[in-house]
């Protein structure tokens, strides 16, 4: 399945958003996720089905003004 994760193209097998995070070695309760520009809550990741062409953003706390 072709996915875009944080702007980079990936060819990866992951049925759900939670599986994608695990496959890419993302972990921690400080991460926020969005699929196709909409928030996906942490509690929904295990059931959130990914499909070919999805754009995923994985964000974490950073310095800001």
């Amino acid at each position: 399945m072709k996915l875009t994760v944080n702007g980079e193209a990936h060819e990866i097998t992951a049925a759900t958003l939670a599986e994608l995070l695990a496959a890419l070695d993302y972990e921690g309760n400080w991460l926020a996720t969005a699929v196709n520009s909409d928030l996906v809550h942490a509690t929904e990741r295990a059931l959130f089905q990914l499909k070919d062409g999805d754009r995923i953003e994985i964000l974490s706390p950073m310095q800001g003004g």
């Binding site: 070695d25 964000l59 706390p61 950073m62 800001g64 003004g65």
Partner: peptide, 12 residues
Amino acid sequence: SLRREMAGGKGG
């Protein structure tokens, strides 16, 4: 702020 986290990253 929130910014993109690298795979396996711990910066955040």
